[in-house]
Amino acid sequence: MTELATYNKPGAAADSIEEPMDLVLLSLKEKVFVKCRFGRELRGKLVAYDEHLNLMLSDVEEKITTSDIDPLTQQETIKVQKKNHSLIFLRGDLVIAISPTPQTA
């Protein structure tokens, strides 16, 4: 069993990116944007993660986008659902992309 990362990488500079997971490490305790499979998007504070990209996020805003096509008219209907969560655990196999949220001036 692996532990979730909540520490700084030993021997690395505080702001260096030497490998892809360093970007995630530098985003620890910061707001991130996570694009997931099945039309889900999450924005929240990255609390912890592991090498499988399992994530724990707090203060999460979730957006779920679904679409349906009417078989008779072939017209597409897009539905957006929004939810808020205080804490969420996200399995790494659902993650497509993770990005730091841009800082506003």
Rank of each mutant, 00 (worst) to 15 (best):
E3W: 07
A5G: 01
A5L: 11
Y7G: 01
K9W: 09
K9D: 05
G11K: 13
G11Q: 05
G11E: 12
A12S: 14
D15V: 01
D15G: 00
I17C: 09
I17V: 15
E18Y: 07
E19A: 14
M21T: 05
L25V: 02
L25W: 11
L25H: 11
L26C: 04
L26K: 10
L26W: 00
S27R: 02
S27T: 04
S27E: 01
S27H: 02
L28R: 06
K29S: 12
K29F: 09
E30S: 07
K31T: 03
V34M: 06
K35E: 11
K35C: 04
C36W: 02
C36H: 02
C36T: 05
R40D: 05
E41T: 11
E41K: 10
R43H: 03
G44Q: 06
K45W: 03
K45G: 00
L46W: 05
L46D: 10
L46M: 03
A48P: 01
E51P: 00
H52G: 00
L53M: 12
L53S: 06
L53D: 00
N54Y: 04
L55N: 01
M56I: 15
M56F: 13
D59A: 13
D59V: 02
D59Y: 03
V60M: 08
E61Q: 13
E62R: 15
E62N: 03
K63W: 08
K63L: 15
I64R: 11
I64K: 14
I64M: 04
T66I: 06
S67H: 11
D68V: 13
D68K: 15
I69Y: 03
D70L: 05
P71H: 05
P71L: 02
P71D: 12
Q75Y: 02
E76C: 10
E76S: 12
T77H: 12
I78E: 08
K79I: 10
K79P: 00
V80P: 00
V80H: 10
V80M: 06
K82P: 01
K82H: 08
K83L: 13
N84Q: 15
H85I: 02
S86W: 03
S86V: 10
L87A: 09
L87N: 02
L87M: 09
I88K: 11
L90D: 04
R91Q: 08
R91A: 12
R91W: 03
G92Q: 04
D93Y: 15
L94I: 07
L94A: 10
V95W: 07
I96V: 14
I98C: 03
I98H: 00
S99G: 07
P100G: 11
P100A: 15
Q103D: 09
T104G: 06
A105H: 13
